[in-house]
Design a protein around this nucleic acid. Sequence first.
DNA 1: CGAAAATTTGACATGACTCAACTGGAGTGG
DNA 2: CCACTCCAGTTGAGTCATGTCAAATTTTCG
Lengths: 195, 195
Amino acid sequence: MHNSLISHIRQIVPLEEQEVAHIQSAFKPKQLARKEILLHKGDVSNHMRFVVDGSIKAFTLNKDGGEHILQLGIAGWWVNDLYSYLTRTPATFIIQSVEPCTLLQIHRDQLEVLYGQVPMIERFFRIKIQRAYVALQERTVKAMSQPAEVRYLEFLKKYRKLEQSVPQYMIASYLGITPEHLSSIRKKMSDADLS
Amino acid sequence: MHNSLISHIRQIVPLEEQEVAHIQSAFKPKQLARKEILLHKGDVSNHMRFVVDGSIKAFTLNKDGGEHILQLGIAGWWVNDLYSYLTRTPATFIIQSVEPCTLLQIHRDQLEVLYGQVPMIERFFRIKIQRAYVALQERTVKAMSQPAEVRYLEFLKKYRKLEQSVPQYMIASYLGITPEHLSSIRKKMSDADLS
DNA sequence: CGAAAATTTGACATGACTCAACTGGAGTGG
DNA sequence: CCACTCCAGTTGAGTCATGTCAAATTTTCG
């Protein structure tokens, strides 16, 4: 069984050995091929999803068919349309694997049962959701106040691993710029390095 | 006593008459003069705050002293550093009145008591927080994908009243652009109207 | 009324996008 | 193993979006 989820949860809340067993049987593994769609726009998201391996994205499409990536996920990350999950309303995002991907997911109903067995899990998710909210606030402020180059540098600092796991044009989409523009930023940076 | 809070809550959850009384005694009115600071950066936010009248903003300062407004609030809105409130950590935002302002606020401890008296209130806040999250997601995507003129037009449609209640340079800050740029967008729009 | 703040205006510089062409690597089928 | 194709990434030219700065004008508030 995958241990990364357990150690991930233990970074935030303590767990008894017996509780670990409950968690491991409540989460179901899910394999995704490359570019497989996990959640379609308009469907209700009924699972919380943890990435064990591979990479995955959550995005919207504009009317010209262009992607706007809201979330990128690799090993150790949660990916979901949280609003759809919490409110049982149709998803506004599409969730799709980038590379072949292994997830652990738990259904909403099963999670309710798990809350009874492992009370700490409720705290764990409350904390994760709060952190997601504040991270989004920070990203919003920065998207509006900092030029793309600065945002890219911060991205590199924070998500070094992610940068190596997803193609560059998706990072551009995540940053809210065109692939060409990101390319020119990278060129400018490497030119500056040589001097 | 102010009734706007009660009718606001009743738009989302039903309330008995007795519950209304509990709510009204749990929330305390607070008067603010113009430009009065309600929450300093670094303090912990201990209240949920509902605007009865006037206008108020939540913002960060960059190193040059420039404001970045994350939230604007007028009558009928909630304004808070939600993360600080939820996690009892130091606030990253400053909350300050724009115009003289009347709030109704409830302390965290008092809210716990109120949850016992009026269970619907817990659902009410859960729904409000979820909506805040999805609104922020939408704003983030649009900040990165749409030009300032489009964002301003959407702002006008959604927040007509707000536009008349706060100075233009704050709207520019909320939109993530300079006051000069917003001014030129408005000029272009009014020029186009005449043709 | 007078001072301070907010808004407008215009000239200029930089950021970012579009489009088109090119490069280079990863399959794929012969 | 080679030629071919496809796709990601790069490059450059031209254009539009947005920021900076300074000055003029209007509004607000004491």
